[in-house]
C-alpha cells in the first residue's frame, strides 16, 4: 500500500477526526518508526503543525506535548529540573542527535514500544497520558490496554516532586536498544521502580518498591528479578535478563536511597 495523501492537521482534534473514521490513516510523530513499519497506511497525518510541541509546568506537573523531541528532553532546563535529569539521561544515548531531533514523546508512548527507555522512565515517574478522545489516564493503565481505540496522544503529564532518580540500562554497543532498562525514582517520598526491555513493555516492580521503601536495595533487586517476566530475544536470553535485573535494580536503588 503506497501512501497517497499527506495531511497536516492544525490541532489534535482535527487529527483525531482524520484518523477516527479511516483505518488507512496513520499519525506521524517523529516518523522514524513509522517509516520502518511495513507501509500499511494510505494517509499520513503529520502532527508537526498540531501545536503539540510545548513543554510547560502547570499545577505542579510537567506537561510534555506529544511532539516534544528527545533532544528537547536532554537540553530543556525545565525538563531537566523537573525530572532530576532522568528524562534526558534515559534517552541521551539513543542513536545520535539526528534521530533524537526527530523522535517524539508521543510517538514513543503511543507506540507502546517494549524497548523504549522513555516509557520505563515515565512509568517510574508515575506519569499520566492525555488522549484527545480518551482523556487523562495513568500511563500504567494506558500500557496495559489490550485493545486501544484509535486516538491521538496529546501530552504526557509528569509529577515534578522528584527528589532523586537513577537510570540504569545495559546495551551492546552504546547506541543500541537496551537488553534491560531500569528507572528508579523517589517522587515525593515514594520510591518507584520500573523495568523495561525484558523484552516486554515496561512494568513497575512493586515487590522491589516495597523492599525499597524499607531501604533494602539488595532485597529489591532480588524481588524485581523474581516478580517480573523475562523473555529471550536477539539481544539476550531470559535467564541473563533475570540475572542482571537484580544487579541493575539494586544499583539504581542504591543511588536513589543514598
Amino acid at each position: 500500500m503506497a501512501v497517497k495523501a499527506y495531511l497536516r492537521p492544525k490541532s489534535p482534534s482535527e487529527a483525531l477526526a482524520l484518523i477516527e473514521g479511516d483505518e488507512r490513516a496513520a499519525l506521524i510523530g517523529g516518523g522514524a518508526y513509522l517509516r520502518l513499519a511495513s507501509r500499511g497506511y494510505e494517509t499520513a497525518v503529520d502532527l508537526c503543525d498540531a501545536g503539540l510541541d510545548r513543554v510547560r509546568v502547570e499545577d505542579g506537573a510537567l506537561r510534555l506535548g506529544a511532539m516534544v523531541t528527545y533532544r528537547r528532553l536532554e537540553t530543556d532546563l525545565v525538563v531537566r529540573d523537573c525530572s532530576g535529569g532522568l528524562l534526558g539521561r534515559c534517552v541521551e544515548n539513543i542513536v545520535g542527535v539526528q534521530v533524537r531531533n526527530i523522535v517524539t514523546v508521543g510517538g514513543t508512548v503511543a507506540g507502546r514500544y517494549a524497548f523504549a527507555n522513555l516509557t520505563t522512565a515515565l512509568l517510574a515517574l508515575g506519569a499520566d497520558v492525555v488522549l484527545a478522545r480518551g482523556g487523562r489516564k495513568p500511563l500504567e493503565q494506558f500500557l496495559a490496554d489490550k485493545a486501544p481505540a484509535r486516538d491521538v496522544l496529546v501530552e504526557v503529564v509528569v509529577p515534578t516532586a522528584v527528589r532523586r532518580s537513577a537510570w540504569r540500562d545495559l546495551t551492546r554497543v552504546r547506541s543500541d536498544f537496551a537488553v534491560l532498562n531500569v528507572a528508579a525514582v523517589d517522587v515525593g517520598g515514594e520510591v518507584r521502580v520500573a523495568v523495561g526491555a525484558r523484552p516486554g513493555v515496561a512494568r513497575l516492580a512493586r515487590g522491589a518498591m516495597q523492599a525499597a521503601a524499607a531501604g533494602d536495595a539488595r532485597g529489591a533487586g532480588e524481588a524485581a528479578a523474581a516478580e517480573l517476566d523475562f523473555g529471550d530475544d536477539l539481544r539476550a536470553s531470559a535467564d541473563y535478563r533475570r540475572r542482571v535485573c537484580g544487579a541493575l535494580v539494586t544499583r539504581a536503588l542504591e543511588e536513589v536511597l543514598a
Binding site: Y6, R8, I28, G30, G31, A32, R35, L36, A44, D46, V95, G96, V97, Q98, V99, N101, I102
Partner: peptide, 23 residues
C-alpha cells in the same frame, strides 16, 4: 535512521533525511 550518511539540516537542525517525510 541508523547510520548518519543522510544527515541534513532542517531549519538548521541536523536530522536523518531518510526518516523525515519529504512533505
Amino acid at each position: 535512521a541508523s547510520c548518519g550518511t543522510c544527515t541534513v539540516l532542517l531549519d538548521g537542525v541536523p536530522v536523518p533525511s531518510c526518516a523525515v517525510p519529504a512533505p
